[in-house]
Amino acid sequence: MSTLLVLEQTLNGIQFGVFLFLISAGLTLVLGIMNVVNLAHGALFMMGAYFASTFVAWTGSFFIAFLLIIPSSVILGIIIEMLTLRPLYLRDHMDQVLATFGLILFFNEGVKLVWGVDPQPMPTPELFAGNVEIFPDAPYPVFRLFIIGVGLLVAAVIYFLIAKTKVGMLIRAGASNTQMIRAMGVNIRFLNTFVFGLGAFFAGLAGLMAAPIISVESGMGDEMLILAFVVIVIGGIGSVRGALVASVIIGVFEVVGRSMLPIAMQKIFPLEIAQTAGPAIASMLIYILMAGVLFFKPQGLFPARTG
């Protein structure tokens, strides 16, 4: 395997990592700040992709679709928050897991009723459809670079919002001591709804960004949800920085692992074994990584200060 290919695979890993970050950003906000386990995050991701597909079909424009995704995913998020999660804030995680599991069932089946059973179309936006040659003879899809850009932008926005704004200050205060901030006259209920809406928006945005490269279909969020959880658990719950670092680590680890491992194994084992055992182990890599990290650092790589 040439050095150039190794470099290209590393770039692929970073890109995949940033994509993972896009999916996990909203989840880590909700989990870290509100201490709510939201399995419906994957469903919100799926809804974002379905919305995107519909909006693009209506308007023909990726950008307008983006503008429409903001209100639609935020409103959906707020509805979910008000109807199902608000009464569960003070309950244990088990209740949150089950209620949001119910939401997954509902949305996975619901999209089939509304949009039909077929996977939905979603073209790559014209502007980003081309390729650039980062490495010689290896044109790289512009849309993937665009994903990296959006991912980093999201990270910057969240950092700015939480660390530099008044709302962010209240959010941080609410996360560390709910009683106190309520006593000081802040509407914590509104604050929670705001954070959840924000999380829903990031999920919807991830759905929009994923739709042109993956299949827009019922259940598309299920596996993504698991990946997102792996990311934020490794990164440390509630830590946006941790999520970013963990995403990129996982991305590179997984992509480089799965492309190199079968080749490396062929040098040691017979071809037959290497061809099947290699990918089998590669598909477990991130779970092994997660178990390893949690064994040594039970709070993840970047434990957030607030529990």
Partner: peptide, 16 residues
């Protein structure tokens, strides 16, 4: 190349 069942990102395989 045998990839993971349910995989959705193929950029690594395509590069290879």
């Amino acid at each position: 190349t045998f990839f993971k069942l349910g995989q959705t990102d193929f950029q690594a395989e395509l590069s290879q």
